[in-house]
Amino acid sequence: MGRYLPIIIVALLMIYCVVEVAQAPPLAVRRMPRWLWAVAIICVPLVGAVAWLLLGRPNAESLGTSRPRPRPQAPDDDIDFLRGL
């Protein structure tokens, strides 16, 4: 069992990464197109999967969800509150 464990781990990592590539928004994937990431993960199992996790996964910047607007300290600093008056 011990000698099959690395193979099982790499296979599960590949499956996880291929599913994640398939579910990622096409324009949010970084560095390469989605189809090329899928090919890299399948053809170069461990290196492709690790590269996807480090370099290709969508992050907050590529998804367009950067930091939220800071909350105002007082009501007269809140644009939405002033608009409702």
Results as ranks from 00 to 15, higher is better:
1 M>A: 14
2 G>D: 10
3 R>F: 09
3 R>I: 11
4 Y>E: 15
4 Y>Q: 13
5 L>F: 07
7 I>M: 08
7 I>K: 07
7 I>S: 07
8 I>W: 10
8 I>A: 12
9 I>R: 13
9 I>M: 09
9 I>S: 06
10 V>S: 12
10 V>D: 12
11 A>E: 04
11 A>R: 11
11 A>F: 11
12 L>K: 12
13 L>D: 05
13 L>C: 04
13 L>P: 00
14 M>P: 00
14 M>A: 06
15 I>N: 05
15 I>S: 10
16 Y>F: 13
16 Y>W: 09
16 Y>D: 13
17 C>D: 14
17 C>M: 08
17 C>S: 15
18 V>R: 04
18 V>H: 02
19 V>G: 03
20 E>W: 04
20 E>R: 12
20 E>C: 08
21 V>E: 00
21 V>K: 00
21 V>P: 00
22 A>M: 10
22 A>E: 07
22 A>D: 03
23 Q>G: 09
25 P>R: 15
25 P>E: 14
25 P>C: 01
26 P>N: 05
26 P>F: 02
27 L>T: 11
27 L>E: 04
28 A>N: 01
28 A>S: 15
28 A>H: 04
30 R>V: 11
30 R>P: 04
31 R>W: 06
33 P>E: 11
33 P>R: 13
34 R>M: 12
34 R>S: 14
34 R>E: 05
35 W>N: 02
35 W>Y: 07
38 A>P: 02
40 A>L: 14
40 A>R: 10
40 A>P: 00
41 I>Q: 00
41 I>N: 01
42 I>G: 02
45 P>Y: 06
45 P>S: 10
46 L>A: 15
46 L>M: 09
46 L>C: 09
47 V>Y: 14
47 V>M: 10
47 V>C: 11
47 V>K: 05
48 G>S: 11
49 A>E: 02
50 V>F: 07
51 A>F: 11
52 W>F: 15
53 L>T: 08
53 L>A: 13
53 L>H: 10
54 L>G: 07
55 L>S: 10
55 L>E: 06
57 R>M: 13
57 R>V: 12
58 P>E: 12
59 N>W: 06
60 A>G: 10
60 A>K: 15
61 E>P: 01
61 E>N: 11
62 S>H: 06
63 L>C: 08
64 G>V: 12
65 T>M: 14
65 T>L: 13
66 S>M: 09
67 R>G: 02
67 R>W: 08
68 P>K: 06
68 P>T: 09
70 P>N: 08
70 P>C: 06
71 R>L: 13
72 P>W: 01
72 P>N: 03
72 P>V: 02
72 P>S: 07
73 Q>L: 15
73 Q>V: 12
73 Q>T: 13
74 A>N: 03
75 P>M: 04
76 D>R: 07
76 D>Y: 12
78 D>H: 01
78 D>S: 05
79 I>P: 01
79 I>G: 00
80 D>F: 04
81 F>W: 04
82 L>I: 10
82 L>K: 02
82 L>R: 09
84 G>A: 15
84 G>F: 03
85 L>M: 13
85 L>I: 10
